[in-house]
């Protein structure tokens, strides 16, 4: 079972995660308007910027984050922003959307000018996250674990970050055991998605380059 302290931590993270959203108007644009490839590029760029802004707000609420060295805070956010964005978009993509919206979203992304070489692994990732049928709690904790990864480039105080990440991993582990008693591999599978995210992060720079060239 989760201890009282762990339960408080979980609820706190979940609450912060639920508030972490891009403005609704921007999300509506994505589904309602018809844009040219250029306008698609600008809209997706604005959404990415907005995503980083709300991600920072979520991250500020992670217990202990604000007591970290300021440059380490930036190194953690810089290292994880792309992964958190893919994780978040995987969650949105796997949600039950109104009829036709998933197709429209996929179509818009596919027509944004990014090569299939980069688009396909992204949709494969979305599908592999979808198969896990993650709860909101699992998404919140996995995002926190991703952000508080001590092995990001330019991090100085690895130990302090490990101390913040560990309780999140413990809560996630216990939560998985409680909610998936018949699937002992669930926790390991969640962590496996983090490995996939690292690969997507690695290819992200090349993906942006191909987007710009196109």
């Amino acid at each position: 079972e989760l201890t009282q302290e762990q339960l408080s931590l979980l609820n706190y993270i979940l609450d912060a995660y639920n508030k972490y959203r891009i403005p609704l108007d921007m999300a509506k644009n994505l589904l309602q308007e018809q844009f040219s490839a250029d306008e698609n590029f600008i809209l997706l760029t604005e959404m990415a910027t907005s995503h980083v802004q709300v991600l920072v707000e979520f991250t500020k609420r992670l217990p202990g984050f604000q007591s970290l060295d300021h440059e380490d805070q930036i190194a953690l956010l810089k290292g994880s922003a792309v992964e958190a964005m893919f994780l978040r978009s995987a969650q949105i993509f796997n949600r039950k959307l109104p009829h036709g919206h998933s197709e429209m979203l996929e179509d818009r992304i596919r027509k944004s000018g990014i090569s299939d070489e980069y688009i396909n692994p992204m949709f494969n990732f979305y599908k592999s996250v979808g198969e896990l049928q993650m709860t909101q709690e699992e998404h919140a904790l996995l995002t926190a674990v991703t952000i508080l990864s001590p092995d990001r480039p330019f991090v100085k105080d690895v130990l302090s970050i490990e101390r913040l990440q560990e309780p999140m991993l413990e809560v996630l582990h216990t939560f998985c055991k409680l909610h998936h008693p018949h699937n002992p591999q669930h926790f390991a599978r969640l962590l496996g998605r983090l490995t996939e995210l690292r690969t997507l992060n690695h290819h992200h720079t090349e993906m942006l380059m191909s987007w710009r060239v196109n």
């Binding site: 910027t49 980083v52 802004q53 920072v56 707000e57 500020k60 300021h70 805070q73 930036i74 956010l77 810089k78 922003a81 720079t205 942006l208």
Partner: peptide, 22 residues
Amino acid sequence: PSGNSIGLEAIIRKALMGKYDD
């Protein structure tokens, strides 16, 4: 670092300070 990561860092720094304007 690439131009992209500088842009990302600028957004992060502004957001950490609570500035969203530009």
